[in-house]
């Protein structure tokens, strides 16, 4: 999960008495990728740290025809660190590191005899990791813009387990360039913001490149102690990579995936620097992606102010 936009908003609101814009791209993928967001990188020397758990347990998926079909239940749990660090007042370093990623698939048991037909399996590894640089283009404008370059490092396992069907990563090195624009305004009691994001994700190893987009709305209450965020995010595949017909390997799983998802997140600052958040996301259309909702819970440290 990317750095909480709410942390950004609170920080900037307190530091500057200006309208603030925060940008976030929350990705809903089964591998729990995430990217940095925010019109402002963290101020020079400041940092934001978040420890979170993200999980998805799925017994159905969107097929290539966009229909929902059942599958044997599988799950993935990512325990991750997300951090942002301000290199300058306009340039920020962003790291997402799932230091424990667990993927499993259930046993298949005969409903007639009770016999074990196909044994389940699980792997525990580190997951694919993202490192990004975010540069604020218009830090002073009323509409804040930023570009982010994210490198997706394939540190996870793309074919684990006895059947090589368990994944904590996709096995490819990708580079994503994204652009964010957003604005915000405040009333006496509530701070609102909205943000749009577009990006192109260049993938290697015969994976299709992707167009990614996102739209986010957020509102802060109780002196910005509580933030409620709603998101619409999506991926459109260019479908210019290999198909299973060309590469008969499980590592090609999730290639040509597409989805549009909605999500919500609630963040609460326990103190001025420590808080927690909970989140939910689910896809309402997709191709070749799990169709069950994902959840996240996390605690964060906010030393950006």
């Amino acid at each position: 999960m990317s750095r909480s936009v709410t942390a950004n908003l609170k920080t900037k609101y307190l530091v500057m008495t200006k309208k603030v814009i925060f940008i976030i791209l929350a990705l809903y993928t089964f591998s729990s990728w995430s990217y940095a967001g925010g019109g402002w990188p963290v101020p020079k020397g400041g940092f934001y740290f978040k420890l979170s758990e993200w999980w998805l347990i799925s017994d159905r998926h969107y097929t290539d025809a966009g229909q929902i079909d059942p599958n044997i239940t599988s799950g993935i749990f990512n325990t991750s660190i997300y951090t942002e660090y301000g290199l300058t007042n306009r340039l920020g370093l962003v790291v997402y590191f799932p230091f424990l990623s667990r993927a499993y698939v259930n046993n298949v048991v005969s409903g007639t005899t009770g016999d074990l037909l196909i044994a389940g399996d699980a792997i525990n590894t580190i997951g694919d990791t993202d490192i990004g640089l975010k540069y604020s283009l218009t830090p002073q404008g009323s509409i804040k813009t930023a570009v982010t370059l994210t490198l997706g490092l394939p540190l996870g396992n793309s074919s684990g387990g006895s059947q090589q069907n368990l994944q904590t990563g996709d096995g490819e090195f990708n580079q994503m360039l994204s652009f964010d624009a957003g604005t915000s305004f405040s009333t006496k009691r509530v701070t609102f913001y909205t943000n749009v994001m577009m990006g192109v994700n260049n993938r290697t190893n015969d994976f299709s490149d992707e167009f990614r987009y996102g739209l986010e709305f957020g509102a802060g209450f109780l002196d910005r102690k509580i933030w409620i965020v709603g998101r619409l995010t999506g991926v459109e595949s260019f479908k210019n990579g290999a198909t299973a017909a060309q590469v008969n390997s499980t590592s090609i799983f999730a290639n040509n995936s597409e989805y549009t998802s909605y999500g919500a997140e609630l963040s609460y600052y326990l103190t001025s620097k420590i808080g927690f958040n909970v989140g939910y996301a689910s896809a309402f259309r997709g191709e070749l992606i799990f169709a069950n909702p994902s959840y996240t819970v996390g605690v964060f440290l906010d030393f950006t102010k």
């Binding site: 017994d59 799950g75 424990l100 259930n106 005969s110």
Partner: peptide, 16 residues
Amino acid sequence: AIVWSFLSCIGDDIID
């Protein structure tokens, strides 16, 4: 988080 991850044990899917 670590306990939660490892508690996510392999279950049974019963098929007809």
